[in-house]
Design a protein around this nucleic acid. Sequence first.
DNA 1: GAAGTCACCGCAATCGGTTGCTAATATATA
DNA 2: TATATATTAGCAACCGATTGCGGTGACTTC
Lengths: 349, 349
Amino acid sequence: MKYNQVTIKDIARELGISPSTVSRALKDHPDISPETKKAVNELADKLNYQPNIVALSLRQSKTNTIGVIIPELVHFFFSTVISGIEDVAYSAGYNVIITQSNESLQREKTDIKALFNSRVDGMLISVSRETSNFDHIDNILAKGVPMVFFDRVYENSNSSRIIVDDLSGAKEATLHLIEQGCKRIAHLEGPPNLEITKQRLEGYKQALQEHNIPIDPSLIVACPLGTIEEGKKATEILLAMDEKPDAIFATNDPAAMGSMQAIKEAGLKIPQDIAIVGFSNWFFTALLDPPLTSVDQPGFEMGQEAAKLLIRQIEVKSKNHDVELQPETKVLKTRLIVRDSSLKKGKKK
Amino acid sequence: MKYNQVTIKDIARELGISPSTVSRALKDHPDISPETKKAVNELADKLNYQPNIVALSLRQSKTNTIGVIIPELVHFFFSTVISGIEDVAYSAGYNVIITQSNESLQREKTDIKALFNSRVDGMLISVSRETSNFDHIDNILAKGVPMVFFDRVYENSNSSRIIVDDLSGAKEATLHLIEQGCKRIAHLEGPPNLEITKQRLEGYKQALQEHNIPIDPSLIVACPLGTIEEGKKATEILLAMDEKPDAIFATNDPAAMGSMQAIKEAGLKIPQDIAIVGFSNWFFTALLDPPLTSVDQPGFEMGQEAAKLLIRQIEVKSKNHDVELQPETKVLKTRLIVRDSSLKKGKKK
DNA sequence: GAAGTCACCGCAATCGGTTGCTAATATATA
DNA sequence: TATATATTAGCAACCGATTGCGGTGACTTC
């Protein structure tokens, strides 16, 4: 939009010098005399000159903008990640364009194209629930666009990625339930396409195996959407079994909440009858009744790390076109936040 | 970032024609022969030509980007608004840059400057809790940047705005409590700078007056941050009174939740001893124990309306530089969602 | 056969800023 | 005084796309 902004030419005209001299004076170029610099800077201040970023972007073939694709903004975890991204990006002088795939592959495809067309300098991506084919991403990667994945990553790319240690987190959660004396621990499994789903399932299994508890497939119930409703339904199925589970480890917090609803409606007590652990530590989990034990994922930190990695990649590339940075994988630690929903034995430690 | 993208010149060179002809051919200009158009379009398809948006922005002095400033992304309400904004913006061909003030005036100032420097075509703003001086906004408004405020608006500007009917919503909530037989209804008041705080307080007062209930200043407790902790503390003060309130209408949901915690810890029952109503209908309010009655604000719709208004303003302005659109104020209806936390008399209707 | 008409296309300026190269002036040196 | 050197600043091209205007060639018309 044209705001009648002052340009370098306005300053040049006013001082009777050329635009190039003004440009150099503003950047403290040694070719320019101190007097000229002084005059230029004073007038620039007076007129409140602000360089036109669009012109700069065109000239330098660099927009100082990074694009972000996330599944859904309204998820506490993702909005926390965004805050982390913005934190790092803004202090490094980058703008952030956020797009939501709404868990739709179709939307993800158009998002990534739109970001590419906007000539963002790089992208931060967490793929949608539906994404099992990655051609649209390979396409853009092939053009040399720096890309860093976070949380829900593209496994087979050799891009950098920031993940949390889902396996350990899930294992720790399950071990905690075992330690509380639970014998029949069910698992609400998440969207099958996502690596995080597999990791959490694997962590669950490993914990059981370590304690020689047989893995009962009927105790693993699918929640491909990971919603409250699904968690509730899945739990109702579990409650209808002859041998009910005495604990549930859910792939995420909404599913865990659905579980809690189903259990309460069945007239059972949490954690006495059935203990529950969720995943993500959504901020309201502490406010549920009973407060929900959950595996905390450091969202803000994940955003920060992802942005840092991407920006480093961008800057290396713009300096030296040939050097390719080795892809890095950064694994962030999870932390089990124990609350009442899983404490059969009462507080420990 | 330079992606070795094909440009109009590449196509021109390949076909042995001039860039201007390619440009016109791509836009179906009548001066160009059908054969040339066909050749150009085919080659453009083959090379997967995508126009450089940055160059277009510079040429047209229009970035097709709108900037958004919100207090905090992690608030359910605001992230819902963002989704509404993106919904409208993307289908109108606009990108969205989101910045968070984190409820800080200082940050709001730098955000607005950064957006201005990025030459966004317009801005959507919801001011921070701290904003009582609006010079930084007037500054930008004076340069002719289209601006629409939402939820937390700048009262004295003659910009368009989208608000919810906070007064009616608050009044309805209070009337509901009165109808439930409550006599001593307390109010947890929000950040004093915000107009929405005043409106909600006013709605509360009007409801009491209509039923000839005297307004007791000691029942109005300040929660200038509107956090859970504040709501809890404020409620503890109320519970320490000789004559305890029998209901609390909180300025927002976190404060209401703090209230619930304090009441439970005091061994009192909700709603039997004290009924509670919140404001905003955060999505997890339904999951609390008891589920919280709250005033629903249509966030998604608010985002849509704000974006629509802004884009209309931008497009009118870019077509006709002189015409100024009359500022509009759009008031969205709230809806009281009655849940157990306020039902002293049991379900009605 | 000269002038007019029309279809088609290219030149060059433009948006705002950057930068390699050159030019002009001043000063130092031979 | 003539030449070398340093200092300072301007010219012009460039990033990629758009667009007013002018030019070329073919065809029509009187």
